[in-house]
Design a protein around this nucleic acid. Structure first.
Lengths: 103, 103
DNA sequence: CAGCTATTTAGCCAAATAGCTAATATAGAA
DNA sequence: TTCTATATTAGCTATTTGGCTAAATAGCTG
């Protein structure tokens, strides 16, 4: 499963995990994210592209800026899929909403 | 959180994830694990040491051989911790009993 | 002890990663 | 158009990673 490698590699970097945490509050522009770190804007841009390639965040243009949003459902689904195959006993979930049919 | 980096980096490699899956069945010796892959024994040994450093597996010596065991609880705890901080809404806390509904 | 098996450790090399600065889009305003 | 602000892409370097073979370690057996 190639997506699993992309997901875990994306999560392996502390800067990228911090970006995800920052996005918990809501959408942020690339520059706003970069301002929270002491590393350069281009480096943050690269981190964002890795997170987006892994589907952990999504982006949308808002005029001049590009806003990033946390894709919490996808993160939870990716890790949940892995957990359910590697340690199904420990992965006890209450929700059985496998289908996304509007309930 | 340094352990998170170790955990995700360990999980980022497909060979290491496959080792974890193989260990679902039970303990395996290093050689038995290596026999399942087309890469060299020393490379598998390195993968095992990375998994052990991340606490995703444990090892015990059995005479001549070294048996590895999946630390499923630890894996679930590590990923659960991350999920609970980054996407608490999507992270459905596991429950002890079903009588705790509607709480 | 020597010999045998199982496993890890030590080097080495190619590829990937993360950081930087400089250059290149892209959008809006003058 | 030109200017400015926002972001990404390009190119470079140092470090890390994952593979290999060869050598060393650990435990059994004769």
């Amino acid at each position: 499963m190639k997506t699993a490698s992309r997901t875990f590699r994306a999560l392996a970097d502390p800067t990228r995990r911090q970006i995800l945490q920052d996005l918990k509050e809501g959408e942020l522009a690339a520059g706003e994210i970069a301002a929270r770190f002491s590393i350069s804007g281009p480096s943050i841009s690269r981190h964002l592209s890795i997170l987006k390639a892994a589907d952990l965040v999504s982006e949308r243009r808002a005029g001049n800026r590009i806003l990033y949003r946390l894709e919490a459902d996808r993160i939870a689904a990716a890790l949940g899929d892995f957990l359910s195959t590697v340690c199904p006993t420990q992965f006890l979930h209450r929700r059985k909403a496998k289908k996304e049919r509007a309930s």
